[in-house]
Simulated scan of single mutants.
Amino acid sequence: MAPPGETERRREQQAFADRVAGLQDFDGAFELVKSAVFKKFKMHRAGLSLILQVMPSNLGAYHILGSNVIVMNSYVLAAIKRISGSDSEYNAYLFMVLAHEYLHSLGIVDENTVRQMTYDLCKALLGEGHSSTLMTKEDPSSLFPQLRYMAQNQFSSDFHVVKNFDKAGQSYIQ
C-alpha cells in the first residue's frame, strides 16, 4: 500500500506528464515551463524571445546573459524530432531544455546549480522515470544515443526567431 499522499502525488505527476506530452508549440511549452518553475521555485519573469540556430551538436541551447533571448539548437531539435519514438519524447526534450534555459534567464548563472534545479523540477513534477527527468539526470544522449554520433561542429550564421513565443509576457499589440 502506498504511503499517505503518494497516490495523489503520482496522479499529479501523471497529469503534468500528460500536459508535457500534449504540447503543440514552443509557446505552449514555455508557458508550461514558466508555471512549473513558479510552482516549484516561486520564480518568474516574462518577455523572453526564442531563436532557433544550428549550433555544435554538443550544445542544446543557451541563454545570452543579461538578455531576453534563449537560443536553441535547431540541428539537435530536428534530430530528436526525427529519432524520438514519439511526440511525447520530443516534447520531454523541449520542456527540459526550455526549463534549463529559463532558470538561467532568472539570473542563475552557475551551470551545476541550474542542472540540479532542472532535475529537481522534473523529478518533482514528472517523476523519476519521465524522459525529461532522465535526460536532466544525465544528458539527452542517455535517451537518444544516436546523438553521440552526430558531428555538427559549427555555428550557422542563419537563425530563425520564433513568432508568438512568450505571448503571455507581451503587453503590447503585435
Rank of each mutant, 00 (worst) to 15 (best):
L134V: 13
L98W: 08
A29H: 14
A78E: 15
V76Y: 08
K167Y: 09
G107Y: 03
D158E: 07
L147W: 04
P56W: 04
D110W: 01
Q24C: 10
E6S: 02
D18E: 15
L125V: 14
V161Q: 15
E111T: 13
Y119P: 01
Q14I: 05
K40C: 02
M43D: 09
G127A: 13
A78M: 06
L134C: 11
H104P: 01
P140C: 06
Q14Y: 07
L125S: 08
L143W: 12
V97L: 15
I80K: 11
N68R: 13
N164L: 13
H160M: 08
Y62W: 03
V97A: 13
V109D: 03
R148P: 05
G129Q: 15
Y102S: 15
M72I: 10
A151H: 14
N112V: 10
A36R: 00
F16G: 00
G129I: 13
D18G: 03
Q174A: 04
G85Q: 09
L143A: 14
V54E: 03
M135L: 05
A21W: 12
A61T: 08
G66Q: 07
V71L: 00
L23T: 10
A29M: 06
G129C: 00
P4I: 10
G127F: 10
N91R: 10
N68W: 01
E12M: 11
K39A: 10
K81E: 15
Q174G: 04
Y149R: 14
A78D: 05
N58M: 12
E31V: 12
N112H: 07
L126C: 05
M150W: 11
T7M: 00
M72A: 11
M72W: 03
L77D: 03
K137T: 00
G127L: 12
G28Q: 11
Y149D: 08
V114F: 05
S86E: 05
Q174H: 01
A17I: 01
G47V: 06
K167V: 09
K81I: 07
R11D: 01
V109F: 03
N164Q: 03
D120S: 05
N68H: 04
Q152H: 05
L98H: 05
F95I: 06
L94V: 01
T133P: 08
T7E: 06
D166I: 15
G47D: 02
L94F: 09
G169R: 09
